[in-house]
Simulated scan of single mutants.
Amino acid sequence: MNVNLDQLISLRHWLHAHPEISRQEVETAKHMRGFLTEHATPDDIIPLDGAGFAAIYNGNPPGKTVLLRCELDALPIHEINTDLPHLSLTDGVGHKCGHDGHMTILAGVAQALKQRPDQGRVVLLFQPDEETGTGARNCVAHENFKQITPDYAFALHNLPGFPAGAIICKHDTFASQVRYGAIRFNGKEAHSAQPETGASPSFAMAELTLKAREIQAIYDRPDAYALVVPVYNQMGVQASGICPARGEVQFTLRSPHADIVIKMWDELFQFADTLADRYNLEVSQEILEEFTATVNHPDGFDMIRQAAASTNNALHTIDQPFRWGEDFGEITSRYKGAMFGLGAGENRPDLHNPDYDFPDEILTNGIEMMVALIKLSLKGSAA
């Protein structure tokens, strides 16, 4: 496998030091395009939604198309591991999900493709906005995605808590369905000495927050978990004489099954509507983010299993899907494919922790896996 590891590590460190949050990844995308153009020139670059783009590597003869995806965005988390030589230069923003490592892995795949695949076509998707759940959805809906239409699609995510370089995968649902939504109440302000002359959302918000536990208990079970988690609330102003008129509660709902998430949200809002009648309020709802469950196709899972065996990476199969959401589900719901985890080390800080840093030592494991998946996907694909 012909890759320049020193070059890739330097790239990863630059990306880590220059993080950009979702919908703002302009410089990140520009840097990645420049790296590819200089070190592994693609046959074409197709612009997609936002800062997103796809780098195309054509084989000869033509045939099937395999898509590999990485993410451009970082998180609004302040980095605290100040001993890093590649410390984030942007206050309050850090690559605390390891997307800098994912981009670098695809850059390594691009280096390995300098001589082009034996047949078929490889598409490297550098996708924006994963952390908001909108990036994959908007990229596949983009007019230019019609030029791609993959036969297979794969993605990875680094996973602390597993042995470094291990491959983690699962049949069927790999990452959960997630909905993040807001329920808002609107009433009438009053003097806090005479609250009965107004309509405050305070008790409705409290009762709705407690109702979340009851709804979760109905659907949560050992073989398929369910979560309804209040994550934010806001009401009133800091003034002793004002009884508030407006309030908002935000919830995150999670389950392996989309229908369960929808049912839980509907029951939550129905109860909010009942409370609004009781307390003389208006009520509204807004879905802020939605992550489609990432469901692994049987063929995709089997290819990951074969790739792990051919690269001598230990394969760990899990029984339950991960509770976090991943917008790669927007792609696996449309095309054959699968997602797998890449172990980042058992004693490493968890994802989204302020001291997390993607381990450079697993870059080669990720590159080897992706290259193996390309070969499996395009095998026998000649037209």
Rank of each mutant, 00 (worst) to 15 (best):
A175L: 08
G101S: 02
Q119R: 11
F203R: 10
T173Q: 14
R121H: 01
H99F: 08
S202N: 01
L106V: 04
P201E: 02
Y152A: 00
S202L: 06
D129Q: 07
P150F: 02
E130H: 09
A166N: 12
V140N: 07
Y180N: 14
F126S: 08
H95Y: 03
K114N: 11
Q111W: 11
F162T: 11
E130G: 10
L113V: 13
T132L: 08
M103P: 03
I105R: 05
F162S: 14
Y180R: 15
Q147W: 05
L210D: 08
Q119T: 14
N144M: 14
L156G: 03
S176C: 11
G198K: 03
A206S: 14
A153W: 05
L156R: 02
E131M: 06
E130L: 07
T197I: 10
K96H: 12
P128R: 10
P160Q: 03
L124N: 07
Y180M: 13
K114D: 02
I168S: 05
A182S: 15
K211N: 11
H99R: 10
S176A: 15
I168P: 04
L124Y: 04
A204H: 04
F145E: 04
E214I: 06
F185G: 09
C97M: 13
E189F: 04
I167A: 13
A141T: 03
G198Y: 10
G133D: 10
F145I: 05
F145W: 10
P201H: 01
H157K: 04
G108Q: 08
F154W: 10
Q111H: 13
R137G: 09
K211A: 12
C169R: 02
V178D: 00
A107R: 07
P150H: 04
N186C: 15
I105P: 05
F145N: 07
E131H: 02
T104M: 13
Y180S: 13
T134S: 14
A164S: 15
A204L: 06
H142Y: 04
K211C: 09
L125W: 01
K96D: 01
A153L: 05
F154H: 08
F145S: 07
E143Q: 11
F203E: 13
A166R: 09
S200H: 09
E143M: 02
N138C: 11
Q177P: 00
A112G: 15
L106M: 03
Q115H: 13
G133H: 05
A190K: 11
D118N: 09
Q127W: 10
S176R: 06
I148C: 07
A212R: 10
E196N: 09
P160K: 03
E131Y: 02
D129E: 12
F185L: 06
P150V: 03
A155E: 00
A182G: 11
A112D: 15
T209C: 08
N158Y: 06
F162I: 12
E196D: 07
S192C: 07
T173L: 12
G108W: 04
P163D: 04
G94I: 06
Q127G: 04
Q115N: 12
Q194I: 12
G120V: 04
V122H: 14
L125M: 03
